[in-house]
């Protein structure tokens, strides 16, 4: 039991974008891979996402952004994570995010981002590997 500690992921959609099918499909894929996923749903704020991640002691925050506002949401969530003392967790996500923007976000400390057509197993593997490498003490 203690040896295969569960990975806990908080999945949410910041902002006013109502397209949640992708987030649900990815959340489901993570569950199929044995992770515990706390699904926050639509219209979240960076504050509500980070507050939930703190209470849930999540290893990973996954954002789904299809509205084009990714350059606002990802940096704001990242900044809040650092401010609230959970900068050691993984911030990842997906949506319609141009490669150039992805590079900028990665340079800020955001993890890998995924887009339409990416196989969900890529996300599963990425998260599993990241957590293995960064496992916190408790």
């Amino acid at each position: 039991m203690a040896t295969d500690t569960k990975i806990k992921v908080v999945v949410g959609k910041p902002g006013l974008d109502g397209h949640d099918r992708g987030a649900k499909v990815v959340a489901r894929a993570l569950v199929e891979a044995g992770m515990e996923v706390v699904y926050l749903g639509l219209r979240q704020t960076p504050e509500s996402i980070v507050a939930a991640a703190i209470e849930e002691d999540a290893d990973v925050i996954g954002l789904s952004v299809l509205s084009g506002a990714h350059m606002t949401h990802f940096p704001k969530v990242m900044e809040l994570m650092k401010e609230k003392g959970i900068g050691d967790r993984l911030l990842t996500g997906g949506g319609i995010i141009p490669t150039k923007d992805q590079e900028t976000l990665t340079a800020m400390g955001v993890g890998k981002l995924f887009g339409p057509g990416d196989d969900p197993s890529l996300i599963v593997n990425y998260i599993q590997d990241w957590v293995k490498e960064h496992r916190r003490e408790n």
Binding site: E32, G34, V37, E56
Partner: peptide, 29 residues
């Protein structure tokens, strides 16, 4: 939890939006 994969999809927070950020309350799934 799924008895087959061990994973869990926890959706309670979707209904509990109003509690987030309220210091009088601590919610955990």
């Amino acid at each position: 939890s799924s008895p087959f994969t061990g994973g869990a999809f926890m959706g309670d927070r979707v209904r509990m939006d109003r509690l987030v950020g309220d210091d009088r309350i601590f919610m955990r799934s």
